[in-house]
């Protein structure tokens, strides 16, 4: 069953630079799709378009519902977005307040919200972090709190923008495990091709405004020629 469908979508920045032009793709429910490509290929912009944070042309359907201004709030309830910089995402001073932000409008009572906060922190390996200040956390902890906040909304689709960026190998390994454990649909934008190879079953290469390749993770990531012409390199596990 298709959960994300993009039909002929295009986006041009206000300064006239075209990011992607007339691209179409489908993502099946439960699939993990890695979106890769060189810097400036429009990977993050594509995630912003899917979540309705920018106005693109073309059609985007989430779970069969065509995205429009009228239903964007309902669509966003199905999606959790983990942004690249955790300081942009953890906007409340304390971890508990941040994770519980917006949950009341999803119909949860106060007791349920407390329970969700505890459960989400537990699933991110952060038991007892409720009262910790967001700004006093390490980068790895901040990234995990972002994931916990994303899990708290029980999303059907998880959008991750460079989740392992700037993490040490230990933090990266922990984060990869947490993302892998999420059972829903995942769309991951990353330059960390080893992580993409580990998590994703499908991969899309975005470059020169179009989708250069879309298919099985192993098939694409192990294609040395394809990777090189798109300024990428074959991850270690496929060398």
């Amino acid at each position: 069953m298709t959960i994300v469908e993009a039909k002929g979508i295009s986006y041009t920045y206000p300064d006239g630079i075209e990011v992607f032009k007339n691209i179409s793709f489908k993502v099946a429910k439960g699939e993990s799709l890695g979106i890769i490509g060189p810097n400036g290929a429009g990977k993050t912009t594509l995630l912003l378009a899917l979540s309705g944070l920018i106005n693109n042309s073309g059609e985007i359907s989430i779970n069969g519902e065509l995205k429009s201004e009228k239903n964007i709030n309902d669509i966003r309830k199905k999606i959790s977005f983990v942004f690249q910089n955790p300081d942009d995402q953890l906007f409340m001073p304390h971890v508990e307040e941040d994770i519980s932000f917006g949950l009341s409008k999803l119909g949860y009572s106060e007791e349920e919200i407390n329970e969700i906060v505890k459960r989400s922190l537990n699933s991110a390996g952060l038991d007892g972090f409720e009262l910790r200040s967001s700004h006093h956390l390490s980068l790895g902890q901040k990234k995990r709190v972002c994931l916990a906040a994303a899990f708290a909304r029980s999303p059907e689709i998880l959008l991750l923008d460079e989740p392992s960026n700037e993490l040490d190998p230990g933090g990266r390994k922990e984060l990869t495990g947490l993302i892998k454990n999420f059972k829903g649909t995942k769309l991951i934008v990353s330059h960390d091709l080893n992580m993409i190879a580990e998590i994703c079953n499908n991969v899309m290469i975005l470059n020169d405004n179009i989708i250069k390749a879309f298919g099985g993770s192993k098939q694409i990531l192990s294609d040395k020629k394809l990777m090189e012409i798109n300024s990428l390199e074959v991850p270690y596990i496929y060398r």
Partner: peptide, 11 residues
């Protein structure tokens, strides 16, 4: 960016 993150969480 913060505003986008807030929108995604129901603001």
């Amino acid at each position: 960016r913060v505003y986008n993150a807030m929108l995604m969480r129901g603001y």
